[in-house]
């Protein structure tokens, strides 16, 4: 009897019917314009203009002008992300108690909405030698000569704080507000001081969320591009890996090399994220219930 059941019925029992097919166009789109290009880039990176299979990768890792970009990018992305996460946690814990959070969150969403290009233009004006900040420092005798904050490492660093901190903060805030406040109240009732409540109750609940936040913020900072060009020294200190990939593709027209650099960039990002998530599993066993949901 059972093999008489029509195919369509058997399929729909497993959740496959006309409605499921509605996901097909979107899936085909993502495969065509995300999965396929990525695989294409991977294959292309092994077909260099000159040389053997691994020629692009050999070139990258033997030319200091190219391989140093990994170190330079990490030297920007890691400190910025650590700073942003470290600032976000105490601020989010305080803002959580605020009744009118919305004004602050609205202000903080502005730099994310405006994007890095506009922030770069603003910083060139504001932090430049004739900008308001240097004017303030000189006027009040805080510095004897204008402080150089653009066209170097610090310009890119600050721009990553200005666009990155709101991003990190809003993510952290969404994790912090997911923690049931009664847990902390119970701790307070049992005599735990603020520091103890943070170390013993909040932090263990926050660690998984903070690791995800760190990963997302890091990946964003690692792929810094416009501000590294506009606010940094794109031939020197802030020649980040995305600048190297862009130069290879659109100035040297070596798409094969550009794909290789993009793959190396993706690999470093994935390696760091996997390492962090792995370390979390190894070192930290989270509470069974979790604080969210």
């Amino acid at each position: 009897m059972s093999d008489r059941v029509p195919l369509s019925v058997r399929l729909s029992q497993r959740g496959l019917d006309g409605v499921t097919l509605l996901a097909l166009p979107a899936l085909l789109f993502v495969i065509a314009l995300f999965v396929y290009p990525f695989l294409y880039g991977l294959v292309l990176s092994f077909k260099p203009k000159v040389g053997g299979l691994f020629a692009n990768y050999v070139t990258f890792f033997s030319d200091p002008f190219l391989y140093s970009t990994i170190g330079k990018t990490l030297w920007l992305a890691v400190p910025v992300t650590l700073l942003n996460v470290a600032l976000s946690v105490p601020v989010a814990l305080r803002v959580r108690l605020m009744r009118r959070q919305r004004l602050l969150t609205t202000i903080l969403v502005i730099p994310i909405t405006l994007g890095t290009v506009l922030v770069a233009e603003g910083m060139l004006n504001y932090l430049g030698p004739r900008g308001w900040l240097n004017r303030f420092l000189l006027e009040f005798g805080l510095s004897s000569s204008p402080v150089r904050l653009i066209h170097n490492y610090w310009g890119v660093f600050l721009s990553l704080v200005i666009t990155g901190f709101p991003f990190t903060f809003l993510l952290t805030l969404s994790y912090v507000t997911g923690i049931d406040p009664s847990l902390e109240q119970a701790g307070a009732m049992l005599g735990a001081r603020a520091r103890q409540r943070f170390n013993e109750i909040l932090l263990p609940l926050l660690v998984p969320g903070l690791i995800v936040t760190f990963c997302l913020s890091f990946v964003q900072a690692f792929s810094v591009f416009p501000s590294a060009v506009l606010l940094g020294a794109p031939a020197g200190d802030t020649r980040v890996i995305s600048v190297a990939a862009y130069t290879a593709a659109f100035e040297d027209y070596d798409y094969s090399m550009a794909s290789a650099i993009a793959m190396i960039m993706a690999f470093v990002q994935v390696a760091i994220v996997v390492a962090l998530l792995g370390a979390q599993k190894l070192v930290y066993r989270g509470p069974a219930g979790g604080g969210k949901g």
Binding site: F34, Y36, P37, G41, F222, F225, A245, I261, A266, Q269
Partner: peptide, 13 residues
């Protein structure tokens, strides 16, 4: 995945 990472192979294609 950040746009610049997948954007370069995508633009190539």
């Amino acid at each position: 995945v950040p746009p610049i990472t997948f954007g370069i192979p995508l633009a190539t294609v």
